[in-house]
Design a protein around this nucleic acid. Sequence first.
DNA 1: CATGTCTGGCTGTCAGACAATCGGCAACGT
DNA 2: ACGTTGCCGATTGTCTGACAGCCAGACATG
Lengths: 226, 226
Amino acid sequence: MDVVSSSVWGPEPLPRVAAPLREQVTDRVRAAILDLRLRPGERLIERELTENLGVSRATVREVIRQLAAEGLVTVVPQRGAEVTSLSASDAADIYEMRASLEALAVRRFVQRAGEDQVRALRAAVDEIARSAEAAGDHLAAKDRFYEVLMEGSASGPLQQTLAGLQARVRLLRATSLSAPGRPTQAAQELSAVVDAVEARDAEAAADACVLHIRNAAATATAQLTG
Amino acid sequence: MDVVSSSVWGPEPLPRVAAPLREQVTDRVRAAILDLRLRPGERLIERELTENLGVSRATVREVIRQLAAEGLVTVVPQRGAEVTSLSASDAADIYEMRASLEALAVRRFVQRAGEDQVRALRAAVDEIARSAEAAGDHLAAKDRFYEVLMEGSASGPLQQTLAGLQARVRLLRATSLSAPGRPTQAAQELSAVVDAVEARDAEAAADACVLHIRNAAATATAQLTG
DNA sequence: CATGTCTGGCTGTCAGACAATCGGCAACGT
DNA sequence: ACGTTGCCGATTGTCTGACAGCCAGACATG
């Protein structure tokens, strides 16, 4: 057998150490939007970005196109880009899609994930519960949960789409979500999902997942329309 | 009342006569990909595009980012863009997502569409059946069907996502899909969907829709793996 | 035959420039 | 005082030209 084969160097074509500048910039701006350092409705002026990021306008424009395609910014012709602010009906759309697609992802997780991945999922949900009581980093905990879920279930297109939906949901946090007591309830709902996963019951897991997102959507839209 | 109000100029904010150059170019390239004049795997060289389309490289690059985000082209760092060629598992992913999301759209169509829209849907499916027998323009007929469906059901994000999935499915046509007799069967399946819609039975319609896409996926993957 | 080396073809990124367009503001006439 | 009109600055849309860096394949070499 060839000396340079197998998994000596790790599989696959090298993690591409130095990402293209354009992607680094994209990540930074996306992070700024998701952290609400750039608030929905706020305009993104090309010249400002070139200055603050130290890249040329051409690069900035490519980045904006990228984020626009992800739905995080909206470009108004002849006026430029601004951080997307979602309408109530957009929000409803997004939550419905998430319900459908995450149910799909969960079903797959049940079918394809190994024991260790299930344990990791349980650990993640425990972490969420803990951060719901004490004031831990709730956000990071939830991210961790979805990270495990995705790794064990989604490939390619599904993962990409779900990531996009998650990101859009975060935009809604601008209008402060999470009613009192919601975090704890959310943790319980997710725990129910993992219960079903551990029992290897795909349909029950999917249903629990749908329920969770429906509830999340309910409190969200309550805030939006209220 | 204001002289310049009402429907003298037609309603709504003007169909935007002159779209930004970048969008015209995007549409053209996308069309070329969807018509398979650019085949999956084919490289898109920036200089060639600038010459053939008569626009600058900067513009071409923005267009490429856009199409990359839509999943129609894949950019390999330091090598450039090529028309996406889908793996079997990608295809499976996409069909599963379509099943989930179109079921969603159909449910909504039942709830929200008016009688005239239901009639339009029936007309569209009849047209598909006709073009399945005689060698009519099968493609256009199916497009028409989805056009009606989308108009009556989807708003914003859902519509955009589904359009993206449809487009990706078309990429698979490169590896010639449609087994013998498939078009006729597809027409029957879609007819079943409309039957349920006419009966205003949302769940039945959604189920019929899922069935249709599962069958489409089956013949598609049969071709891909075989 | 295996190993270096070179070179052309592209991409990644930049700077600078110019026209077209939008939005607001101020001058204007009534 | 108030609605119009016309102008100006701020920004986007697009083009040109340039240069470094990377990749693959041709070529030369031992």
